[in-house]
Design a protein around this nucleic acid. Structure first.
Length: 861
RNA sequence: GGGCGAGUGGCGGAACUGGUAUACGCGCACGACUCAAAAUCGUGUCCCGCAAGGGUUGAGGGUUCGAUUCCCUCCUCGCCCACCA
């Protein structure tokens, strides 16, 4: 008998499947529903690591399962091929980015094939292919025409030493990754997409999605909706005003100063009136140099400068208040200016403490409840009280009520911050009303407006990089920004040799004079091409649509083909894309919907973030740590089926866990597959042992039910466990598979052919090569992967006889066998008469008996 | 600092809507086969205890006849965000 030769088996079937085009998906199949399974397309970094395997194996199992369930399954693949690493490789090693990318893709393709994935390669897309990015450009133009793509001075990371713009990932703790120089902020004219216009819909439409709650929650936080008010403060004597945003207009009467962000334009316009301009300007300069990290890391200590010579009028109190500039106010959120209420905001409180500014308390907490007070055990037994903004220990012997009063006194005296709700005080005619009522009342009274703001900022898509999709616009001195006419698309990325940045912040493309200089499509005069390229997140914001119609050269995807497949039924990917890619592509899809280009407003029905595979030492795999598992090597030694099945077995696929690769764990799976191989091969050699019994054993039916249910929930690890139980047999069950004795010879038992076939079908999604091999060995002549998924017999899986557990006071003291549907009276009777139970009762009468039908009796004494 | 998630044997993990905690795999121990070893197969394997029995799902409290599961507090780890007015 031949040993389990995984190399030979896997290679042979991979070739056959390819010849048979087993996994090519037609757009429609008579009598079958379509189902779209998607995995984020990979970046062609060079080779597939174990993480890629893990990423694709789960969905591959699922896709194979869905196919056998009778669905016409789209499971496509492509490459997210633009991006920085290709350009870096070009600069460092003098390789052409295109060649680098395409040779990586070629290598990765054959690795994917080795995995035994059921991907449909006929629909492959590559985002750096002009046939693809032509449509990226076309879509960009649709955004532009709708006013959703615009140019604006936007902040970039600038390395003064390399004289280049840096991507966020090139800035490590505030310094340039390459040269270690401190990174500066610099304003540059950049293309942005107006995602903020869609903020509300992006939040509201989350409701209807079948996504894990934590992903939705993360997106809500990212978008960051907050309800508040815009209030206007006039600048005394200078005929100017400042608009501020606050979520707490009810605290207006406690606003004792204003703070402007260093970048606020008003500062510049009041230059003449500000008497300490030099000081102010110096502060602004320092703030500009600071990176975000510095602004926050040194962060707790507040800094700022008063704008001397100007004051503002608090529209509530009509009192003059001072105006400050401080970098704890962010220019890009709200209006870039705040009213500071030190008595009721922790940051303002800290600032006021430092600069000795007045604090006016305008809210009085009504009761303990306003503090959301909690009593708890302290270290030495005393009680600690926490409120929204306070946490303190009452003095010895003090009751919580005393502590509360003391704290209220501290708040009223301006010695403590209180950010909770309560009743207004020191607020003129508004005294006595609740903070909730006051929000709108005060806003109205001072002529402000209620306003919803979002943390979400517009999406800057300009990149000063070569290896990206060219932005299809032309700058004409006369006509301004002119879109490239659609019939001139694609704007092809020119082949160049010099990828070194220009030094003035422009993309290397700016040096390609022939390419840059064009005639204006409108006036025919001299004009220049835009030299920025698009963020790669733009490429990946619509790729799932292209898969539905990958070869279309008339449209980005025809409406009919889209509708055959969209929306994506199941989308699997990494947790790192929760707020970026997932949000961007949802935004894209909504815009396309509004343009009448797609049918749904949401692209993905179901989303799952997968876990992470760690090195054997429990750390993230990295070359420097030497804990990288090379999948090629594992496949060589153990076979793709083993690696696949081990990855399925390693932990629950639908949870964002981190699973260490255990080299010893893999051998367990390999041993299992070897046993399966030996068994089926032996049986196939000795056909007369096969017995075609109708029905199959009870165990196989239960296994079918279990595996079916669990694959649907993506708990592949338990499915594998059940397949092992099935194969090893269960003591209580008649052995379904025959048995080998110690010498590897058959005991004279017949094998249930039906059960064996069902087993191989269940195995097929996990170990597709081995299952196929054994399936043919049993005499079948068509692929196991084309078989319908086995069905279980519901009458067989229900147990008539069950074990009912008997507890006394919640502790298990015995059990008895009974019919599944035994009624309460009988169950109670049986339980009470068990000798062990009688012993534990010790003659006492039970107080109560709880009966859980078909499961347990709990006797309480 | 905030948000989200997780803590179960020596290890990865299982346990459906609260109902026999530790399935399955690894490891380990013993046994069979072998001259021997590897491989393979079999048996055992949460802890304490000779046993009867008792204890155990990060710690403490609560709800319940019954809690890994629900609630509260705390601790630890992971991820994301980080002065968002």
């Amino acid at each position: 008998m031949e040993r389990y030769n995984h190399k030979e088996i896997e290679k042979r079937w991979q070739k056959k499947w390819k010849e048979q085009k087993l996994y090519e998906t037609p757009d429609t199949v008579e009598g079958k529903d379509n189902f779209y399974t998607l995995v984020e397309f990979p970046y062609p970094s060079g080779n597939l690591h174990v993480g890629h395997w893990f990423a694709y194996i789960g969905p591959d199992i699922f896709a194979r399962f869905m196919r056998m369930q009778g669905k016409n399954v789209l499971f496509p693949i492509g490459f997210d091929a633009f991006g920085l690493p290709a350009e870096n490789a070009a600069i460092k090693r003098g390789i052409n980015p295109r060649e680098w990318t395409y040779s990586n893709i070629a290598y990765m393709r054959q690795q994917f094939e080795m995995m035994g994935t059921s991907l449909d390669w006929s629909r492959e897309i590559i985002s750096c292919d002009p046939r693809y990015y032509r449509w990226t450009q076309w879509l960009f133009l649709q955004f532009f025409k709708k006013g959703l793509a615009y140019q604006k001075e936007t902040e970039v990371n600038w390395c003064p030493s390399c004289k280049t713009v840096l991507a966020n990932e090139q800035v490590v703790t505030g310094v340039c990754e390459r040269c270690g120089t401190e990174v500066e902020k610099r304003q540059m004219l950049q293309w942005n997409l107006k995602i903020t216009d869609y903020a509300e819909r992006l939040i509201d439409d989350l409701e209807k999605l079948d996504w894990p709650e934590e992903i939705k929650q993360a997106q809500r936080h990212w978008i960051g909706r907050s309800e508040g008010a815009l209030l206007t403060f006039t600048i005394q004597e200078h005929n100017a005003s400042v608009e501020i945003f606050t979520t707490r207009p009810d605290t207006l009467f406690g606003a004792t100063y204003l703070v402007l962000a260093p970048e606020h334009t008003l500062i510049e316009s009041l230059k003449d009136k500000i008497t300490n301009w030099d000081e102010v300007e110096a502060y602004r300069q320092t703030a500009r140099k600071k990176t975000d990290i510095e602004r926050t890391a040194l962060g707790k200590e507040k800094t700022g400068v008063e704008l001397q010579g100007i004051t503002a009028l608090n529209p509530g109190t009509q009192e003059e208040i001072s105006v400050w500039v401080a970098d704890y106010v962010l220019s890009h959120y709200g209006t870039g200016a705040i009213m500071a209420v030190p008595a009721h905001d922790e940051r303002d409180f800290a600032f006021a403490q430092k600069f000795n500014l007045e604090k006016v308390c305008v809210i009085e907490p009504r009761s303990l409840d306003d503090f959301t007070l909690r009593k708890m055990q302290g270290v030495s037994g005393e009680e600690k009280i926490t409120g929204r903004a306070v946490a303190y220990w009452p003095d010895a012997g003090e009751t919580p009520e005393h502590g509360f009063k003391r704290e209220v006194a501290a708040i009223l005296a301006g010695k403590s911050v209180y950010v909770g709700e309560g009743t207004l005080v020191h607020s003129g005619k508004f005294d006595g009303i609740t903070t909730q009522e006051a929000r709108e009342a005060i806003t109205k009274a001072v002529g402000g407006e209620m306003k919803t703001t979002y943390k979400l900022r517009d999406w800057t898509v300009s990149r000063q990089r070569y290896w990206g999709c060219p932005i299809p616009v032309i700058h004409c001195a006369k006509c301004g920004v002119v879109p490239v006419p659609e019939h001139d698309l694609p704007v092809v990325l020119p082949e160049i040799d010099d990828f070194i940045p220009t030094g003035n912040g422009k993309s290397p493309l700016a040096k390609v004079v022939d390419w840059v200089n064009v005639k204006c499509p409108e006036c025919g005069g001299d004009a220049e091409r835009e030299t920025d390229t698009l963020d790669t997140f733009v490429d990946s914001s619509w790729y799932f649509l292209r898969y539905t119609d990958p070869h279309n050269d008339k449209e980005f995807a025809s409406r009919g083909k889209q509708e055959a497949w969209m929306p994506v039924g199941f989308y699997s990917g990494g947790a790192e894309h929760t707020t970026m890619h997932l949000l961007y592509s949802r935004f894209f899809h909504k815009v396309l919907f509004d343009l009448g280009l797609v049918a749904d407003t949401e692209p993905y029905v179901r989303r799952m973030n997968r876990g992470l595979i760690l090195g054997p030492d429990g750390n993230k795999m990295s070359k420097s740590k030497g804990n990288v598992i090379d999948p090629d090597d594992m496949v060589e030694r153990l076979g793709a089926d083993t690696v696949r099945m081990y990855l399925a077995f390693i932990g629950p696929y639908n949870e964002v866990g981190a699973y260490p690769w255990n080299p010893d764990g893999v051998v367990g799976v390999r041993r299992f597959l070897e046993r399966v191989h030996v068994l089926v091969t032996k049986i196939a050699e000795d056909r007369k042992r096969l017995k075609d019994v109708s029905g199959g054993s009870v165990l196989i039916h239960r296994t079918v039910r279990f595996v079916t249910e669990v694959i649907g929930r993506l708990k592949f690890n338990t499915a594998v466990a059940q397949l092992m139980i099935q194969f090893n047999g269960e003591n209580s069950e008649p052995d379904w598979r025959g048995k080998l004795n110690n010498k590897g010879e058959w005991e004279s038992m017949e094998v249930d052919l039906m059960a064996l076939k069902m087993f191989l079908k269940l195995l097929a999604p996990f170990a597709p090569h081995l299952a196929e091999e054994l399936w043919y060995q049993l005499g079948n002549t068509t692929s196991v992967h084309l078989e319908p998924w086995p069905e279980y017999d519901p009458t067989l899986v229900e147990e008539e006889q069950v074990t009912i557990v008997v507890q006394v006071n919640g502790k298990t003291r015995g059990e008895f066998e009974a019919a599944q549907d035994i009624d309460e009276t009988d169950a109670r009777e049986r339980a009470l008469t068990l000798p062990t139970v009688e012993k534990w009762l010790g003659g006492k009468e039970p107080n109560k008996v709880v009966y859980v039908p078909g499961r347990l009796v709990n006797i309480v004494v």
